[in-house]
Amino acid sequence: MDMSAGATCEGRDLSALTSPELMKLEKAIAERFMGGLPWGSIAWGLGNFAVWLSLWPLTLMGILPLWAAFPIATANVMLCYLPSHEAQHRIIAREGEPLFWLNELVGHLSTIPMMLPYGVARLTHYEHHKHANHPELDPDIGTKSRGPWHMILKSIAQRQPGSAAGKSYGATLARIGTREAQVAGLVAVVYQLVYLGVLFAMAWTGHALVAALVWWLPKQIGTTYIQFYLSWAPHHPGTQIGRYRDTRSFRSVGGNLGSMGMQFHIIHHLYPRIPLMRTPAAYWALRPVLAARGCDVAGL
């Protein structure tokens, strides 16, 4: 049976294929969606950061009222993670390639609104891929919840002082134990000191509301939104482990845009090199194969 790069599932009786044949067909289809420069994600990451940064002078100079800046800043935080996520997987460019500097620039700048250092995000995210849903080794297992409202409450609770789940990234870096992980941990401390320093300085100079509505509150709302769609929803109920079992497709009430493409997150876990904006098309092309593999694709 021909399993060339142009392979499709159309007209095939997949139940008759052996596991190696299914894998060959799966890879052939997936490869059609890899490669190229994801300019959309690059513009998204840098543009979103620039808009968020502009809110500070605009509000401090009285050009933009706080009631208008607040929803923009909240959207900025909600949107800030995924471009860095592309960079974490070296989708923009790999180390040694001419545009690797752009990959790293997008990775570092795009998550500043949520104060998540790129090094921490990248190292812990790799551990999530290796150990998705593992009760001890998955750094994101803390979002495992009974349902959506329970998850939202847990997300808020994790950011309270003394929360064990809130320390999972630090524990993961300590477990990794490499020089890179140690540096990432130190950078995280610097980030937190800068963040708290800015909030304190703004409050001290009489701009507490600006700090609260341009950064603190948007950061809280945006972080919960990101944890909901990027962590909880694609892995719920979070009990199964394995390449074809630890992630699912689901239908979001906000649609593909409202969930930032996470309805198709199963594709990312199977093939992290497929850019975010191609995952919907890749999902529909691969869906019959995934169903034959026993993946949870009932949601879409």
Rank of each mutant, 00 (worst) to 15 (best):
A5D: 14
A5G: 07
A7R: 11
C9R: 15
C9N: 15
T18A: 12
S19D: 14
P20V: 10
E21L: 10
E21I: 06
A28G: 14
A28W: 06
F33R: 06
L37G: 04
P38W: 05
A43N: 15
W44D: 01
G45E: 04
G47N: 04
N48S: 15
F49I: 03
T59K: 02
T59S: 06
M61T: 11
A68M: 14
A69R: 04
A73K: 03
A73L: 05
T74G: 00
V77T: 05
Y81W: 14
Y81S: 02
L82C: 06
P83Q: 00
A87E: 05
Q88P: 05
H89S: 03
R94H: 09
E95R: 13
L99F: 14
W101S: 10
W101C: 10
E104G: 00
G107R: 01
T111A: 08
M114Q: 04
A121I: 07
R122G: 07
T124K: 07
H125V: 09
H131M: 06
N133G: 08
P135V: 03
D140S: 14
D140A: 13
I141L: 13
M151Q: 13
S155L: 12
Q158D: 12
G162S: 09
S163H: 04
S168R: 10
Y169D: 07
T172L: 07
L173D: 00
R175H: 01
I176F: 04
R179W: 09
R179E: 11
Q182W: 11
A188K: 13
A188D: 14
Y191I: 08
L193K: 05
V194G: 10
G197L: 13
G197C: 15
F200N: 13
M202C: 00
A203P: 06
W204G: 09
H207T: 02
A208T: 03
L217V: 14
K219N: 12
G222D: 05
T224W: 09
T224G: 07
F228Y: 13
L230A: 08
A233E: 02
G238K: 02
T239R: 06
R243Y: 12
T247P: 02
N256M: 13
G258Q: 06
G258L: 09
S259E: 05
G261E: 00
F264D: 00
P272C: 09
P272G: 04
R273M: 12
R278M: 05
R278L: 10
P280H: 05
A282L: 04
W284F: 12
L286D: 03
R287V: 10
R287H: 14
P288T: 12
V289T: 05
V289E: 01
L290M: 15
A298K: 12
G299V: 03
